[in-house]
Design a protein around this nucleic acid. Structure first.
Lengths: 336, 336
DNA sequence: CTGTTAGCGCATTCAC
DNA sequence: GTGAATGCGCTAACAG
């Protein structure tokens, strides 16, 4: 938006462009104190600032990372971006940002565009972590966040699903619940669900899947469903037993809550409940709902930390992909 | 991340770099069909892609816009970004993104950094719209979103506060409410609040401020407050009158709801209520809460539309700053 | 139709 | 301590 170049200020300072360049890069050893001061003056007066484009070209480096998020609108991705942005600033990277709006095709376009921009690295919040497109990405300059592939080919940072469920459900066990149930969308080999369920089994020591309740992915909240039936079966026959549920996310929690409402059961009173994911309304409800709050900010930070580290080391061959687990916060309220 | 340059593929194609450049830019008229095909082949085989940096330098243009958001974590900014990203893609811009985390100092840094990147334009979701720092920005290449300054110096896109409140409150009036109250944080000259209140007065025809209830900015939701008192005064003495409240945002709504709960009044039953802002829990509550849903996505779109238009026209002197209002959706549920 | 050439703004030897 | 020269990868005349 300006017009001054390094030449202009070289002329004004009556020095060569090289000296100016040195000044700009802090190589003050290579000039007299007087020219240094003169340059400082001129530059501040002209509000000249070097062209990053030109500099990138000359140095053949580009301190920017490309970001592709599946869905900016998802409440869990904002904190991730916040963490990324924090670290980018800290490390002197700028971030160019793309949103795929849950569209795999668009994600591919975004990633390709990002690569053409010659970004130094890539951070991807994948639409479908099991897609094959990530195979083309080198693990040397990319990291995946938030969603874990069944077989991951690049480093990924995700919330510690298994352990958080384990410790939360252990708290329920400790309160003397006789029967605990895990309410989930169909497992379908999705790693998030599998890992959360694994945590549940770990805490409860259930050996088979008798305590796994599955609800279809897209059931209406406001119509009675099969789930009403199984809930009624459990609750009507519970006798003196304490019954508890752990729901794998907020949607299944709502499913449970709505069903219970239809059947005239109250949570906390007639049964205990805790859930993965935190939303504001869980705190507003009365009694408040215990939940696992994932630390998305930390995921963003860790992702950029990892990426920076990878970018700074020279690999003779691609590093083995790892997955790093980020611990969660357990929010215990009065729902169990 | 690659190594092929235009020279390499020129050599491979046994043509000059100029021809390759023409090919890349779609100037197929300037070459024979055979060389065109040959080039296409070679390029696809080598997975060569031109350096955007070099291209930007050569063309002295930079199809990127800089974005500075006050707080990525605010649920209303995600849709704005979504809209921006939509339009950026459409118009062929890429976006470099910064987050200020509600810190004015950081915002200044971000904006300066963005300008140094030689972005073509700037879109700013301001931390404090009344800050003086926006005075330094030319209206020729920047637009502000979401928050309106008292005296705005650059084009601004905001939600249509006044008209949405007006039409929502008119719906309450139509339902025969005898007394309507506007619950708000102290007006304090903040344009958002002023405009919403103006809409309220427009709908109710109240001439003075007797129906404005002010609650301090930072009162705890869970302790009884002065507000409890004034609410009790109104509700205890209402007689046969229908009483309604319009709250200026979700926080003041919660204030109202919690106070009512403490005083054993029920909304919808003992009084009517509607609010600015929509959150998921308003839909979950029973009865659902009527609210004004601002179309943040549209704000993002409009902002980028405007910016693009400005970028493409040559101004002899800076254009007069305008403010554009984005209409909202009125969600009527059962709370009044 | 194709090649030559001169920049774009800056960084970096290598002389002086 | 300083400056001229060269190149980063590409574009845009201008010749041929």
């Amino acid at each position: 938006m300006e017009k001054f170049t390094i030449k202009d200020i070289a002329k004004l300072g009556e020095v060569s462009t090289a000296t100016v360049s040195n000044f700009l890069n802090g190589n003050y050893a290579k000039m007299s104190a007087t020219t240094r001061e003169r340059l400082a003056n001129i530059i501040s007066k002209t509000d000249y600032h070097p062209s990053t484009t030109a500099r990138n070209l000359a140095k053949n480096e580009n301190k920017t990372i490309g970001i592709s998020v599946a869905d900016i609108t998802n409440p869990f991705t904002s904190p991730v971006i916040s963490g990324l942005s924090e670290r980018c600033e800290k490390y002197g990277y700028k971030m160019v940002f793309t949103n795929s709006n849950n569209d795999e095709r668009r994600e591919v376009e975004n990633i390709n565009r990002l690569r053409e921009e010659e970004v130094a690295g890539l951070i991807i919040d994948p639409v479908n972590p099991d897609s094959s497109i990530y195979n083309q990405l080198s693990n040397a300059y990319t990291v995946i966040v938030d969603r874990q592939a069944r077989r991951n080919v690049v480093d990924t940072i995700v919330t510690d699903n298994m352990n958080s469920v384990d410790t939360m459900v252990k708290k329920m066990v400790a309160k003397g619940y006789d029967d605990l149930y895990f309410v989930s969308w169909p497992l379908d080999g999705v790693s998030t669900r599998l890992n959360r369920y694994a945590g549940f089994k770990l805490a409860t020591n259930y050996l088979n899947d008798d305590h796994l309740i599955t609800v279809p992915y897209n059931t209406s909240l406001n119509k009675s469903s099969d789930f009403d039936q199984t809930l009624e079966n459990i609750l009507a026959n519970k006798g003196d037993k304490k019954i508890g549920f752990f729901t794998m996310n907020s949607r299944t929690l709502l499913q449970l809550l709505k069903s219970a409402q239809r059947l005239n059961y109250n949570y906390a009173e007639d049964f205990g409940v805790a859930t993965y994911e935190e939303f504001e309304w869980m705190q507003l409800m009365n009694p408040g709902i215990s939940c696992v709050r994932q630390d998305s900010f930390a995921i963003g930070c860790a992702a950029m930390d990892l990426l920076k580290e990878k970018l700074e080391t020279q690999y003779d061959n691609e590093p083995e992909p790892q997955v790093k687990l980020i611990p969660t916060d357990l929010i215990v309220r009065d729902s169990f």
